[in-house]
Write a protein that binds this DNA or RNA. Structure first.
Lengths: 203, 203, 203, 203
DNA sequence: AATGAATGAGGGTTCATTCAT
DNA sequence: AATGAATGAACCCTCATTCAT
């Protein structure tokens, strides 16, 4: 029975998949128990209820992204590269963990406050980090003056909209998947940075 | 008995509010009936089921936006003004019809295909229209060459991200509500248009 | 709109078909209204409810059979022929009006007393008539002494069991349909009549 | 809590009674739960739905009768005794398990195929067994040549018709209950067997 | 720690019937 | 006579959760 990771992880992994595929509301505890090969009772030994499972998933995802962002920050890369990587992170996460990404997009507007707040925390967290980058860019004279946080939301919104549209299998999705990351990175840089020393911004 | 709008409208209005506040899945027919002051049976007399109520809400919203977009197109405004108005439309819709907006943002990623498809249709519809504007701008030499559809999604994503963050009552939300529309319009124009005749784009 | 028989008949005909095909409980008033091309309200103008429609169907069927039995009685046929015709009547009714026959077999045991009583009346009526024939046969010395009513039920049971098994489309049903009437008539006569004057009963 | 039989049996017993008294379609799960003194949920814990309860009832009844028939066959009784006991079995089952008998008679013609097929299986099973007895009787020269299956249906039909009429409390029912079994056994034997060696069949 | 039988409120939907028109 | 919108109780079933084992 221990041929798998810890029982708690089996539960969150099963739940993650089902929440994303079927929806949080539509996923039953029985389904989670079945997929995790665990008894229903066992779930309630580790979690106080369905919502707590989701909370744990969110918490783990927050940590995962924070680690990524922290790593990015510490590398001291040029601004342009940092932006490029941020964009890439979104696309990669959507490919590797598309289920959970979709789950987040959906539950971000969940009516249950406790849940929504946690997911929006994650979002605010990422936005805050991006805003920080922008602020530094402004200070360094690389980015045109603007409201860092507002601009961060704009950036994230752009990336998300394209990423999400890239999820399907239709022609547009495929195109977006192929061209999206590069196009986004170029667009963003073009939009943010200050054209110095006569270089043509739109060259 | 006719001191209220048509029964069908009372139902959709009640459903709209509840779907947005509680979620589509979490909203019961009984709750809709109660809020609409209608018997459950009456709902089924006008709609084949819960999903059809949502369909109607979506359909109406599509029509509402299409009318707006059509009106915008026919006015023959300068490109910059069109974009400004598009942005404003989003913000206004979020204030006047915040419920339905939230509903759409949430259910856009619902796993139930019938639901998702309907809402994504609305989104694709708007995106298509924006892409059309962009294409015309490119032809007219006012907008830098780019993939119109991808850029449309970027635009909509930017506006949405800011609009959504502007929904709450915290300090940031208030700020976004005040500065957002103008900032977005400026940003977008700055980002899209071609700097001609020696004007400084970032002046 | 009067391109059909009386509205009342349209209703009973539609109901008859649906009751037989779908079951009494499973048939909705809306379905009857639809098939009869009549409004629901109109049905309630002519019948007090669903049960009364069934009652009317039963009543009509009772009359139909009573007419047949009355006609048979008045013809003064030899006993053997009367039995032959009784058997044939069952088979014919099952072919021509199989729906309603099945309906009767089913609802004969319906829990609703008012309904059951009516259908059992029909059955008792037919049994009484058959018992009468048997009694006359005994008096005439053509039929062996026996309890006429009990024997009548035995006879009807035999015929019914074979008729019902003959309803399907499987091999056995087809065989029963082909051989049943003759075999039943022969069997019955063999079973009932007194072997007089040295004729071989089992010849 | 275990002062009663197994919960599953309580459910089938309650359902059996209600199905018979009220009809399968007219019996609600709530009523079953109430009579069985069980929660609705518990029913669904043991059965996949209402139909499965019926299935189980049918299955048990099939087994009960098969055991009886198997026991009868293995006793190696004279043919006449076997028939006598078959008839008696029907009457006894109608007294001891009148509910389920009525249930079967009614639902045998239910339009829902899944239901009908299950019950007709039971019937075909019994008929097949009776046909087997008849076939052996023919081979042994004790029964006149005939189509065994058709004759089996005739036999069962006779017995059933009398049994059913014997169910009520009116005068005829009482009479049938008293005289029926003997009269049926005598009739059947008279009808089936070959008069050998000059005995008078109708003596 | 782990099980899974049991709970019963609530899910969406259908129904026979009523009644204003 | 005829309509069909409206009613709300009842339908079968699923749910998250509890608890004796």
């Amino acid at each position: 029975m221990n041929d798998q990771p810890r029982l708690e992880d089996r539960i969150t992994q099963a739940a993650e998949r089902l929440f994303a595929q079927e929806g949080f509301a539509a996923t039953g505890m029985r389904a989670i128990a079945q997929l995790a090969k665990v008894s229903i009772g066992a779930i309630y030994h580790h979690f106080s209820g369905k919502e707590e499972i989701l909370e744990q998933i969110v918490r783990e995802e927050i940590e995962r992204r924070q680690e990524f962002l922290e790593g990015l920050r510490q590398r001291g890369l040029p601004l342009k590269d940092q932006i490029e990587r941020l964009v890439k992170m979104h696309f990669d996460l959507l490919q590797e963990r598309g289920d959970v990404a979709r789950l987040f997009f959906r539950e971000r507007f969940d009516p249950s406050p406790s849940l929504r707040v946690k997911i929006q925390d994650l979002y605010g967290n990422v936005a805050g980090y991006v805003a920080e980058i922008i602020k530094q860019g402004i200070t360094a004279g690389e980015i045109r003056p603007c409201s860092p946080l507002l601009t961060a939301y704009e950036m994230l919104g752009m990336v998300e909209a394209v990423s999400l549209r890239a999820l399907g299998e239709d022609e547009t999705a495929v195109q977006f998947r192929n061209e999206g990351p590069q196009e986004l990175a170029t667009s963003l840089w073009l939009w943010l940075h200050i054209d110095r020393g006569g270089e043509k911004a739109h060259a």
